[in-house]
Design a protein around this nucleic acid. Sequence first.
DNA 1: ATAGGGTTAG
Length: 591
Amino acid sequence: MEMSRFPKTLLKPYEQSLKALLSLLNRYSSSPRALLQLHAMILKSHLSHHPFLLTRLAHAYLSCNSLSRPTRILFNFPKRAPLFLWNETIKAHARNGRFRDSIGLYDAMLAGGATPNEFTFTFVFPACAAARALSDGRRIHEHAVRFRCLSNVFVATAAVDMYGKCGEVGLARQVFDGMPQRGIASYNAMLAGYVSSGKCEEAISLFDQMQKSGLQYDATTMVSMLQACASLGALHKGRWVHEQIVSSQMEINVHLGAALVNMYARCGCIEESRSVFNEMPRRDLISWTAIICGYGMHGLPEDAELLFNQMVHCGVMPDSITFVGVLSGFSHKGMVNKGREYFKKMTDEYHIKPTLEHYSCMVDMLGRAGRLEEAEAFIRTMLVDPDAGVWGGLLNACKIYGNVKLGERVVEEILRLDPCNAGWYVLMSNIYATARLWDGVAKMRLLMKERKVSKPPGWSSIEINGQRHVFLVFDHSHPRSEEIYRLLKYLEERIRAAGYVAETKCVLVNLDEEAKEDMLCGHSERLAIAFGILSTKEGEVLRVIKNLRVCVDCHAATKFISKIVGREIIVRDANRFHHFRDGVCSCGDFW
DNA sequence: ATAGGGTTAG
């Protein structure tokens, strides 16, 4: 190799001219070993303080992701180091995951009296974004304004991205709106920000604006759009996005493929999700994980397991998230032995350290199978401290099996860890209410009042002709509200005649039975289902999205409704999918 | 003589 002859060449004195050293730097800039030798050579030569040569040397180190030597060169620079070198050092630290150091270098640069330029900000903002360093980001944003750099598209886009990643979509939007011009990347940064903070409707309307502005979209844009549709359960829009991707002849890369698989699965169409997966030109870990999680969500763990084995057979190694998909699938169907088998496989065979999510799945699985002591024992074996989510699985099991005593012990644990989440208070209330312990219900309600936590409003949505309709509990705001309640009343009579009995223990307050039954009828998913029946043709599938878990009574009622009206009703709740058809649910009443 | 934003997916 040429590399081995390198030291000899260097030793020749005539090579030590600036021109020769520069050309050597050029030639060996990607070989860290050669750089070290060149570095030693330069230090011994009469050019040891030559600014340009030092800059090139440091830059060569940086492009090999070597950080400490160039940083030393930077700090020991004869007189003031060039802005270029500061910028490149800031960039290299950010690229190598040293975000705090990157920000520190920026500050050191300012402290040394240098003036940052547009390049500086395009390197330091991503560091703030990755470190989720909002206060640094805000401070540096002010600098960008002061140094008149924010009018630059690159700088402003990086600032939008930074605010978006820090969860400050409002600030991101302010920067976005103040931009003199925007590129595709500017829109993409803003869209990703909206999607990651759950503001998916804003993302969709921004996309419409992007279309109007005449700007083309790219694959990144479409991935964000698909995520937005997945999260909203907006199947119609998701299909439209898919069509745009196809008709614009965009290549379905692994990112788009996984996003499509996920969108169809999360919109209730597991078969379409599967056909996208089957037709993908290339599959990676994330594509496999997407479809495995899809089957898990839909309560089809056997298919998930089959795919898991196919994936391994194809030489793709599963990761932590793949196992979350598999385990949650088993948990949804109460397949305790399989769950245990895969938990063991994960740790022993794949050496993946279980995370809180895996523990939650296992506790949930054991708990819902009625093995409450085992679930608690399992929590005690955990290598990490359980969080509220893990204990929550056990609390939920206490609700299902009416175990007030254990519930009280567990909720104490939970509220110590997560006192602001109203869900736990409600769940414990539910346990008390089921046992008709109204004092307990009152106690939980008082606690909530004292701590000023409020229950997140339950909502359900349904898409009709591409339009999303959202219903809250006892919602009367819909223009067809009257018809909806009339239909519900009618359905109520019909399902009663078919054998439905209201599960009034779902109602958390102490009322007489009739009042409780009325309360159940106003649950948001019933309103959405009724509206769906009113607004679609006979035989059409209804797809409902809910933010909370479906309650026992609505679950029972929906089974009857599916039979009476001859409709397939697919409900996505906070946890999983329920497919109601001809009086039965795919979950087999186990959820 | 040197340098740039959005990597988005499970």
